[in-house]
Amino acid sequence: MIVAERKPLDEIEAMLASAERVLVVGCGTCVAVCMAGGEKEVELLASELRMRAQASGQRRRIDQVTLTRQCDREYLDALAAYVEEYDVLLSTACGAGVQLLAERFDGKLILPALNTRFIGTAEGPGVWSQRCLACGQCLLHLTGGVCPVTRCPKNLLNGPCGGTNHGKCEVNPENDCAWTLIYRRLEKLGRLDLLDAIQPPKDYRPMTKPARLVHPAFQTESAPPTK
């Protein structure tokens, strides 16, 4: 899941500047799960903005709506009838959602209310941690299901650096050393042999930006010839 966090209110206020008619647009998918931009968070943000405007006597209308998903075009169509009423749309989606909104309503100023942080999992209520860098070349089969590309700040592929510290990482002692986790897990699985091979330098081509993907079923070039 994509994990995001809301920008500070001051920053959002500064972006809104003198906009009078504001529509806060929530997203009901990842950012709703990570409690950053779902219906509830839209309500809280709208309430905070209203209180600010009310206290300062600023003329402002703050409406709210939450879409099922902002990163799929189909869900944006329902907004088309309303956008003209607003000066700005303040999106609480991830960066992908904000951009699709801007693409769909290209005459409208679209502002981001969140900082998109990472692809991760929930550690517990209200706590998430990064698990995948979308490197496009998964090697979890070699590392006991622990990703060194994501979980080691130096993305080392051949073992720990000298900064490994009682199972913790020197860059942030709160984090586990990915390579200690990998070693311990492979040890438990009886597969330490997986660590024998020297991993070659990583191929970063799949990470070239902007990435694009066409599902094989939707590829237009002719299918490979039958023999």
């Binding site: 709208a46 209203r50 405007a53 006597g57 402002r60 703050i62 709210q64 709506v65 879409l67 907004l79």
Partner: peptide, 12 residues
């Protein structure tokens, strides 16, 4: 203070 105008859009 003057209350700030606000509503929730009801989409189809």
């Amino acid at each position: 203070k003057q209350a700030v105008e606000s509503r929730k859009l009801v989409l189809p």
